[in-house]
Simulated scan of single mutants.
Amino acid sequence: MAKTIENLEIEYQLAPTKKQKPNPNELGFGRIFTDHMFMMDYTEGIGWHDPRILPYQPITLDPSAKVLHYGQTVFEGLKAYLSQDDKILLFRPEKNMQRMNRSNDRMCIPPIDEKFALEALKSLLRVEKDWIPKAEGTSLYIRPFIISTEPFLGISPSISYHFMITLSPVGAYYKEGINPVKIAVEGEFVRAVKGGTGDAKTGGNYAASLKAQIAAKNRGYSEVLWLDGREKKYIEEVGSMNVFFKIGGEVVTPALNGSILDGITRNSIIELLKYWNVPVVERQISLEEVIQAYNDGKLEEAFGTGTAAVISPIGEFAWEGKKMIINDGKTGDLSKKLYDTLTGIQTGELPDPFGWRVVVD
């Protein structure tokens, strides 16, 4: 069977046998994948073509494919939920497609048709609806990504690509769940610099973070707090998340500057805070300012935000042999309210005054 969308037909190649569904209470994150995936190809002179839903399977790449040598690739991350009345729900998915095209532009990858990509995702979700877990705190993680496939060792944009979407039933991203995590401030390595690719969602940014992340985990910390790449003075992100600080009743998050990812959860948190009339500001904030606020007793809460964890409260920062214990190492009231509200909107359990929720019909 096939479905026509925007003059393209999605071909369906359904799996003859289905995998056994995992225990929803033992999911972890990103290791289990559904029966099917979406795939579409790009060829110079033709454009994007041959959209198809097919059984989840390995792909074949030429050893000289550019993605393997020059890292020309982008990806996204979002989630699907099942409502109490058994409807598939997405959270601001159009923002993910828009951001993917911004990343495509930075990485010299041909843009996707955002409307078509979203409809392709919905088609895949309809096929895989039974894979969406219903247990509290679980969801179906969605990974759209593009890789360059031209077999050529010259340094230039590829002339061919694969666009794929895979699905993975997941539990909590951090084992701590909504409980506070411990963060080490990174003083040696940097994640990105202004003018680089920090505001694009591309694989190299994450590969560059691994060295510091491993060192932090060996010291008992969940993630690292990244400082700017020029002065190593100003706060940028925490792990793979945006970061917020509640200081003296005001919530502060680093302003987007070209090296910080424009997080969709970040944007949603800012809108929620404004809706509640909680003072919130996007600006440059230094590590020194945060330390001073802590010493003055004004650092009330800190938390990271992102698709995978949604809200991750921070209970401790470590810097130059010293520790800052925030809110007695407990989840703050604002962090908990933000988490409960955002997840409530995402799952359909709370009203959505912003029109963020998208029903896959």
Score class of each variant (00 low, 15 high):
Glu349Ala: 13
Tyr141Ser: 02
Val67Gly: 04
Val127Met: 03
Pro111Cys: 13
Pro93Thr: 13
Thr149Trp: 03
Val251Ser: 06
Ile264Gln: 01
Asn23Phe: 09
Val193Asn: 13
Gly203Trp: 03
Glu271Asn: 09
Gln72Asn: 05
Leu54Val: 07
Val280Phe: 06
Asn267Phe: 11
Ile325Cys: 09
Ile214Trp: 14
Pro353Asp: 10
Trp226Tyr: 09
Tyr275His: 15
Val170Leu: 08
Glu11Trp: 06
Ser156Trp: 07
Ile88Lys: 01
Glu320Asp: 15
Arg230Gln: 15
Ile109Ala: 11
Ile269Asn: 04
Asn104Trp: 06
Phe317Gln: 06
Gly332Phe: 02
Ser259Val: 04
Gln346His: 07
Leu342Tyr: 10
Leu124Pro: 00
Glu300Asn: 04
Pro63Asp: 01
Leu90Arg: 01
Leu350Cys: 05
Leu338Gly: 01
Lys211His: 14
Ile326Arg: 01
Lys19Glu: 06
Pro16Tyr: 12
Leu14Ala: 11
Asn218Glu: 15
Val252Lys: 06
Val193Arg: 02
Thr347Trp: 01
Gln346Tyr: 10
Val190Leu: 13
Ile345Tyr: 09
Ile59Val: 09
Gly304Cys: 05
Ala2Val: 09
Leu125Arg: 00
Asn242Val: 00
Ile109Cys: 08
Thr34Cys: 13
Gly332Ile: 02
Ala302Gly: 08
Pro133Thr: 05
Pro111Phe: 12
Pro313Leu: 11
Asp62Gly: 04
Gly195Pro: 06
Gly137Asn: 09
Ile5His: 13
Ile112Leu: 15
Glu76Met: 07
Glu237Asn: 01
Ile291Ser: 05
Thr341Lys: 08
Asp105Ala: 14
Ile109His: 08
Thr60Tyr: 02
Leu89Gly: 03
Gly263Ser: 08
Tyr206Met: 11
Lys201Arg: 14
Gly204Val: 07
Asp86Tyr: 08
Asn277Cys: 09
Arg266Leu: 01
Gln213Asp: 15
Asp262Met: 10
Tyr81Leu: 04
Lys274Trp: 08
Phe303Asn: 01
Leu272Trp: 04
Ala207Thr: 09
Ile109Met: 11
Lys336Ile: 08
Ala172Tyr: 11
Glu26Cys: 11
Ile132Gly: 06
Gln346Met: 14
Ala207Gly: 15
Ser312Cys: 12
Glu9Tyr: 06
Thr73Arg: 10
Gln292Phe: 07
Phe91Tyr: 15
Thr4Arg: 13
Gly154Val: 02
Lys79Ala: 11
Ile214Ala: 12
Ile269Met: 12
Tyr275Asn: 14
Thr43Val: 10
Thr73Lys: 11
